[in-house]
Structures are given as structure tokens and as C-alpha cells.
């Protein structure tokens, strides 16, 4: 069985983002980077599937500049066999069709049986790339998976709908699955596995060879939202904060 998992490296969402005026993206200096949260579940599921079927070959892929190798190394340490960095210093300027088109161009003659992606990226949150890759390859996409099972060439997932409802959906491989939070418990790479990962193959492919799509969506600007909320911000020493909060709750709510 051949498995592919696609991951994106994103900034830590607790960062203070700096956005220059007239800019369409945030400044990348001073940010901590990590694997997109949804994609950690994708990597874990891919590794679990590999362990289940035994005879499997698992590739992890990420499009982006050199820094994404850190994310790829973590995925290797979690249990992927080989990493592909589709090198693109301007990946943040590409839209989902260009990213998905490049992934599909890479995957099209490789006969992957199962492809995993996250359901969305935390910085863009578009939720498009996974479904587009499947459509471009002409294979079924099962989205928003919170449970995954594989047996005899057939995949069954529970899709998460609104309000706690789930839908059970099946497809024959080859198929693509987009992973929702809570699908599994992503493992922490152990030290021996981090050491082993250093010897694994990490291949670079320039995006130029794979990029065929034109951008369909243009970003005009990026900015902090206008503050709509009027939250009273309290800062200071803990004891004082506690007293202030009790005062406010007594005055403004009927609960104390």
C-alpha cells in the first residue's frame, strides 16, 4: 500500500502577528512555526494505517520554503518513511488551486492508495486543498473525519456534522481523507525516533516543475480586525485582579 500525507507548516497561533500597512501577509521573522494542528492528526492516522497493514510505504509532503523541513522532520520522527519538500519561497502567495494543483501533479503517476490531509489550515482556514487534490486526481474525498477504519481496500469514516451528529461514509481506495481535530491522539516523537529520522530521505523538488494552475483568488490586504468588542481589559497583580473581578461580578451580574 502507498500512502501520502500532506502537511502545512503554520505559525504558532498565539504569536503577535506583525502586518505592515498595504501588506498581504504577516512578517515571518520572530514567529515560531509548527505543523498545522489538523495535519498532526493526518500524520498520526497515516502512521497508524501503515502499522495496521504492515507492508506500506508512507510519504509526507509539504509545499513551502526551507523552514518547512522542520515540520517534515517531525513527521519523519512520527513514523513517515520519506519526506518531499516542494520548494516554494512564495507559497503563501499561492491560492488553494495552485497548492492543490502542485500536489496533484506530484501524486498523479504515483498510485497512492490513501491520501491524508488536514481539513483546514489554521492560517488560511480555507478547507479547500484536500478536496481539490481528490477531485484533480478523480478519487473520492471523505471529509471531516473523526474516526477512520480501513479493511480490504475499503475505507469507512465518521464525518463530523453540526451539533454532535455524525455520518458514516464509505469509499473504495484510492481515496483521500481530510482529518478533523480529535481523530486520534498524535504521538510525540521519541528521542530514538528523532535520531532515526535524521537518516531518512528528504527530497527537494522545485515548485516550477509542478505548478500548472493560475491563481484564482487574489489577496488585497491583511489586517487586524477593527475592535468591535468593548471588553474591559484588566492587568496587574493577581490579588488585585481577583478583588476587581469580584466587584464587577457583584455589580454587573446577579450571580454573586
Amino acid at each position: 500500500m502507498k500512502i501520502l500525507v500532506c502537511i502545512k507548516q503554520v505559525p504558532d497561533m498565539e504569536s503577535r502577528f506583525k502586518v505592515a500597512a498595504n501588506s498581504t501577509w504577516f512578517e515571518e521573522s520572530d514567529l515560531a512555526w509548527r505543523i498545522n494542528e489538523y495535519d498532526e492528526f493526518a500524520v498520526e492516522q497515516a502512521v497508524q494505517l501503515k502499522e495496521q497493514v504492515g507492508d506500506a510505504d508512507l510519504t509526507v509532503l509539504s509545499i513551502g520554503p526551507a523552514r518547512v523541513k522542520e515540520a517534515l522532520k517531525k513527521a519523519l520522527a512520527m513514523g513517515c518513511e520519506r519526506a518531499i519538500n516542494i520548494v516554494d519561497a512564495a507559497a503563501h502567495e499561492k491560492d488553494s488551486f495552485q497548492i492543490a494543483g502542485s500536489i496533484a501533479a506530484f501524486a498523479k503517476d504515483k498510485n497512492f492508495d490513501v491520501i491524508f490531509t488536514g481539513m483546514q489550515s489554521q492560517d488560511r482556514g480555507s478547507g479547500q486543498v484536500g478536496v481539490l487534490v481528490a477531485e484533480l486526481l478523480g478519487i473520492p474525498a471523505l471529509t471531516t473525519a473523526i474516526e477512520f477504519e480501513y479493511a480490504d481496500g475499503s475505507i469507512s469514516v465518521r464525518r463530523e456534522l453540526e451539533g454532535g451528529l455524525k455520518a458514516v461514509v464509505k469509499a473504495k481506495t484510492p481515496a483521500l481523507v481530510t482529518c478533523q481535530l480529535g481523530l486520534n491522539t498524535p504521538r510525540y516523537p521519541t528521542l530514538p525516533n528523532i535520531m532515526k529520522a535524521k537518516k531518512k530521505e528528504l527530497l527537494e523538488i522545485p515548485i516550477g516543475e509542478l505548478l500548472t494552475e493560475e491563481a484564482r483568488l487574489q489577496t488585497l490586504s491583511l489586517a487586524y480586525p477593527e475592535k468591535k468588542g468593548s471588553a474591559l481589559i484588566l492587568e496587574g497583580e493577581i490579588g488585585e485582579l481577583v478583588d476587581k473581578v469580584i466587584g464587577i461580578l457583584k455589580e454587573k451580574t446577579a450571580v454573586l
Partner: peptide, 30 residues
Amino acid sequence: AQASEVVEATAEGYLLPACNAKLRRMVKAA
């Protein structure tokens, strides 16, 4: 083109959340 999770539509384009809703991105279809 696809714009996901539109929160506002203006003459300029569509406004979308970015980075876990910390930022807003204005986009336009080509």
C-alpha cells in the same frame, strides 16, 4: 475562485478570517 468562511461582503471583495480569527484577509476573485 473560492472564498471560504466569508464574514463580510463589500464592493472591494470578501472579508475572511485568517490565523484563527486573529486577522482578517480581504480577497477578490480573478
